[in-house]
Amino acid sequence: MKIIGIIFMVIDHINIYLGGVLHLPLWVSLLGRFVAPLFIFFIIEGFYYTHSRQKYFWRLFIGGVLMYGINLLRNILTHNTTNPYTKQFDIFYLFQGQNIFMTLALVLLWIWILDTIIVNRLHVTNYFMLIIALIVIISFILISEGGPYELVMGLIFYLCRGNFKRISVGVMTFSLLLFVHALMSYFGQVDVGTLYQTLTFDDEYMMITVLPFIYLYNGQRGGSGQKWQKNLFYYFYPIHLIIIYILSTIF
């Protein structure tokens, strides 16, 4: 499933950065919407199966910091540091770019703290401090890649873990709300293009396509268990983005 996710992730990133050059149809953007929710699903599963949650978090967090560095370098070299609306330097544009590592790390940390609050009997002071931590982390998740959507999906997968019917209801309900939001964007505003253009741009409702993959998940680790398979995503993610970033600059 991770290999399938990686393949469609590459297609999605090619579409984002090279879609115009390659004249890809707008519907290509719909193909990869299941990828981030799928990796969020595996983050929740990994939360329970990993031998060390701390090491799991730090691997993702360090990967996120690395991606910030790659995005920073790219934006400086391409002079992509100015807000197009204010025409002023914007630190958020300085670090903008793909960084699912940081999103996964933050969602994992948020779920970890939430699980600690729910499962453990803590002193009231500790409860208060952890709740403050949850609120603070949310602010960082909201500005991370796909953060608001992936936080909701993470909550659904965590709260409904092991019950596909409940997961389906949660995912379908959230996707329906996002679809309604997309329709409201089309009918409630002027100069937003055609309905087709709107639904292929505001397309997060297609996260519903993650459900067949979750249904097929059997709780077992895929592959042969070799170390390179475990670490494939950590190496492949930054390398493929560097290549796509370079190609997008050339073309």
Rank of each mutant, 00 (worst) to 15 (best):
K2R: 15
I6Q: 04
I6H: 02
M9R: 01
V10D: 01
V10E: 00
I11C: 03
I11V: 06
D12Y: 00
L18D: 04
L22V: 05
L24K: 05
L24G: 03
P25W: 07
W27E: 14
S29L: 03
V35A: 00
V35Q: 02
P37D: 05
P37T: 00
L38Q: 01
L38I: 03
F39E: 00
I40S: 00
F42H: 04
F42S: 02
F47A: 05
Y48E: 05
Y48G: 07
Y48A: 07
Y49I: 07
Y49M: 08
Y49F: 13
T50Y: 09
S52C: 08
S52K: 13
R53P: 04
Q54R: 15
F57Q: 12
F57V: 08
F61D: 10
V65H: 12
Y68I: 15
N71E: 12
N71H: 10
R74C: 12
L77V: 05
L77Q: 07
T78Y: 09
H79A: 14
H79K: 13
T82A: 14
Y85S: 14
Y85V: 15
K87D: 12
Q88N: 10
L104D: 02
L104T: 02
L106V: 08
L106C: 11
L109G: 09
W110D: 01
W112P: 03
I113L: 07
D115C: 09
I117F: 05
I118A: 11
V124Y: 09
T125M: 13
Y127H: 10
F128T: 02
M129I: 10
M129S: 07
I135N: 06
I137T: 08
S139K: 15
S139N: 15
F140M: 13
I143W: 01
I143V: 14
I143A: 10
G146A: 11
G146I: 05
P148W: 09
Y149I: 05
L155M: 06
F157M: 00
F157I: 01
C160W: 01
N163H: 09
N163Q: 07
F164M: 02
K165V: 03
K165P: 03
G170Y: 01
M172N: 07
F174E: 01
V180C: 13
V180Y: 04
A182P: 02
S185N: 11
Y186K: 01
F187M: 14
V190M: 13
V192Q: 15
L195W: 03
Y196M: 12
M206F: 09
M207H: 01
V210I: 04
F213Y: 02
L216G: 04
Y217I: 04
N218I: 00
Q220F: 09
Q220H: 14
G223T: 07
Q226Y: 03
K227C: 00
K227E: 10
W228Y: 14
F233N: 14
P238K: 12
I239S: 13
I239G: 10
H240I: 08
T249Q: 12
